[in-house]
């Protein structure tokens, strides 16, 4: 199998999980109600745990230890989609991002569970089970707030419109797209995006929200290491203590 292609795939999904997990964890102590505080914190733990397991697969392929990979790389070495690095904003913004992102992730891991690269397929099966709760959570809230009152509908709509081009950026094709598909390691971004469109449409159609055009230009770059300034700041904060002495045991 093409190891470079597998590594590239693993990096982008691991980085996505780490960065969104970090953002989710910023809701700890700040949620609109205690239960949401706890829910975001719970999802954050899942995501960061998932990223750790994925970095571990990379380590098995000869990459550095997970801690070094996560805490010591520079922003332009990260392959996460820009969607995941955007600051949390208000709850509507975080909720919409969570909905758009996790719908895509649950489809992605559903396919990865059938990957020809068996370590990934095994891990994906486990992750899939966790993501089911994340999408259930997102769908419940989108339906609730997307039908509640004028303020909640307007807020959700504004966030949806703002985030949509970034969400389309999740599916930025990789340079290894064809190899991955041929070797049955990964089904490819196009297939994921198509299913994603169907699923988000199904949920959003049950609300007062209007779906932006799927043919809107996507914001790409993340998969190639091009990021907003927010990622640099996030990484500086994340590694602040670790970098005091990266060789120390903390």
């Amino acid at each position: 199998m093409n190891t470079d292609a597998i590594k590239e795939l693993l990096y982008k999904i691991a980085d996505d999980q780490l960065i969104i997990g970090h953002r989710n964890s910023e809701w700890t102590g700040m949620g609109p109600i205690l239960e949401e505080d706890i829910a975001f914190s719970s999802m954050a733990q899942d995501k960061i745990g998932q990223s750790y397991a994925l970095y571990q697969l990379l380590h098995d392929l000869g990459e550095d230890e997970p801690d070094q990979v996560a805490f010591m790389r520079k922003a332009n070495q990260f392959k996460n989609s820009q969607l995941t690095e955007l600051p949390n904003g208000e709850y509507d913004y975080s909720l919409l991002r969570h909905f758009l992102f996790d719908t895509a992730e649950s489809i992605r891991f559903e396919f990865l569970a059938q990957s020809a690269y068996s370590p990934l397929a095994l891990l994906a099966k486990k992750i899939q089970g966790e993501l089911r709760y994340h999408t259930m959570h997102a769908n419940t809230w989108i339906k609730q707030l997307g039908n509640a009152n004028q303020e909640s509908i307007l807020r959700l709509q504004a966030s949806l419109d703002q985030l949509f081009p970034f969400a389309l950026g999740i599916f930025e094709p990789s340079p290894f797209e064809n190899v991955l598909i041929e070797e049955k390691i990964f089904v490819g971004e196009k297939v994921i995006m198509q299913k994603w469109q169907e699923q988000i449409a199904k949920i959003l159609n049950a609300t007062e929200l209007l779906i932006p055009s799927f043919s809107e230009p996507a914001i790409y770059g993340g998969r190639f290491g091009h990021h907003t300034e927010h990622l640099t700041l996030l990484l500086e904060e994340m590694s602040e203590v670790f970098r005091i002495d990266p060789t120390a045991e903390w």
Binding site: P32, I33, E36, Y91, Q144, N149, S152
Partner: peptide
Amino acid sequence: ARGKWVRQAL
């Protein structure tokens, strides 16, 4: 204050 609209919507 930031979460008030969520609670109201519920």
